Amino acid sequence: MIALNTNKLTPFDQKIKQPLSKQKITVLQINLGRRCNLACNHCHVEASPKRTEELSPEICQQLIELINRFPQIETIDLTGGAPEMNYGFKLIVEAAKKAKKEVIVRSNLTIFFESGFDVLPEYFAKHQLRIIASLPCYLEDNVDKQRGKGVYNASIRAIQKLNQLGYGNEPDLILDLVYNPPIPSNENFSLTPNQINLEKDYKTFLKENFEIKFNQLFTITNLPIGRIKTYLKNKKLYDAYLQFLESHYNPQTLAHVMCRNQLSIDYLGNIYDCDFNQMENIAATLPDGKPLTVETLLKIGNLDVINDIKTADYCYGCTAGSGSSCGGSLI
């Protein structure tokens, strides 16, 4: 599909015509830091081995207190960087599991082969962590172009190891994979493929070639944030890409966008409506306009203090076509 660069973008808040309201909070998505063993070219967090930002012991303890205090929290979603490399990972995992929460780790899989992290697969299985792992294509060339040479083969070996431990087979050991489309190099933009059909293709190819099993595939749209934003601007494609996303806006996705029932928390304890707002530094606020932190929530004693979600033009990425979220397509 070709994006036309002739129409002016409609601001997202004007498109939806009314504020996007927050619902009961059931998910905490925590970014533990920017340190990562990879530097993928589609990373909206701009993580890399050179980054040093990570959670502090003080904020870690506040997060554990938050997890313990609010029974309404169902899921703790740990991300980064490579979350496993940043301070507080195991402390939060074990506190959350003790509190009977679902724990998701968003793993790049290749971390298993870094010094000191080879025990992670067994640790994940022991604590029954749900793994959501990046594998942006089932073909080697496409993966290595996005994530670096050798990443595909390392990812395959990591999944095989997880399968040996029961992931993808046992009901309490869930392994989901994530598809990201290639970053567009011209105005021939396209939305993510149909998630159900692409999952079938992944499962067939990976089973036939590597005897690999996994649970679900999530298709996630590339939002123009972080390294993708920089790339699109350098290619003079940024405005055209946003217009393409707007042209495929689907109002049916609004009821299901992930920002409605989650809080996104950074390594400093600041709170955002979603991970994308976190990267763009658009803080969530109380009705009086004051920014929110974990410490503030603990003092208030209430998670449901945000009325309206802060939106931006990149929200078209979550609401185009079948929609996109950290859990894949929305409808």
Rank of each mutant, 00 (worst) to 15 (best):
I2Y: 04
N5S: 10
T6I: 12
T6Y: 04
K8S: 15
I16D: 01
I16F: 02
L20C: 04
K24S: 13
T26D: 09
Q29W: 00
L32R: 07
R34I: 01
R34T: 11
R34Y: 03
R34L: 15
C36K: 01
E46W: 00
P49I: 08
E54I: 04
E54D: 05
N68K: 07
N68R: 08
R69G: 05
E74G: 13
L78K: 04
G80F: 00
G81H: 10
M85G: 08
N86P: 12
L91N: 14
L91R: 12
I92P: 11
E94H: 04
A95E: 09
A99R: 00
A99Y: 01
S107N: 07
N108W: 03
V119T: 13
Y123I: 12
Y123D: 13
F124T: 08
K126C: 05
Q128M: 07
L129C: 09
D141R: 11
K145N: 12
Q146K: 05
G148I: 08
N153F: 00
S155V: 08
S155E: 05
Q160S: 08
Q160N: 14
G168S: 13
G168N: 10
I174E: 03
L175Q: 05
D176Y: 03
P181R: 00
P182E: 14
E187L: 07
N188M: 11
P193D: 06
E199Q: 15
Y202D: 13
K203Y: 05
T204E: 13
T204D: 09
K207R: 13
E208T: 15
N209M: 10
N209R: 14
K213R: 07
F214A: 06
T219Y: 00
R227S: 15
R227H: 02
I228L: 04
L232S: 03
L232H: 12
Y241H: 03
P251Y: 04
A255R: 11
M258K: 05
R260I: 11
N261P: 03
L263F: 12
L263Q: 10
Y267L: 09
E280I: 05
I282T: 08
T285H: 06
L292M: 14
E295C: 11
L298W: 04
G301Q: 06
A312D: 05
D313A: 10
C315K: 01
Y316T: 15
G317I: 06
A320I: 09
G323E: 05
G327D: 12
L330G: 14
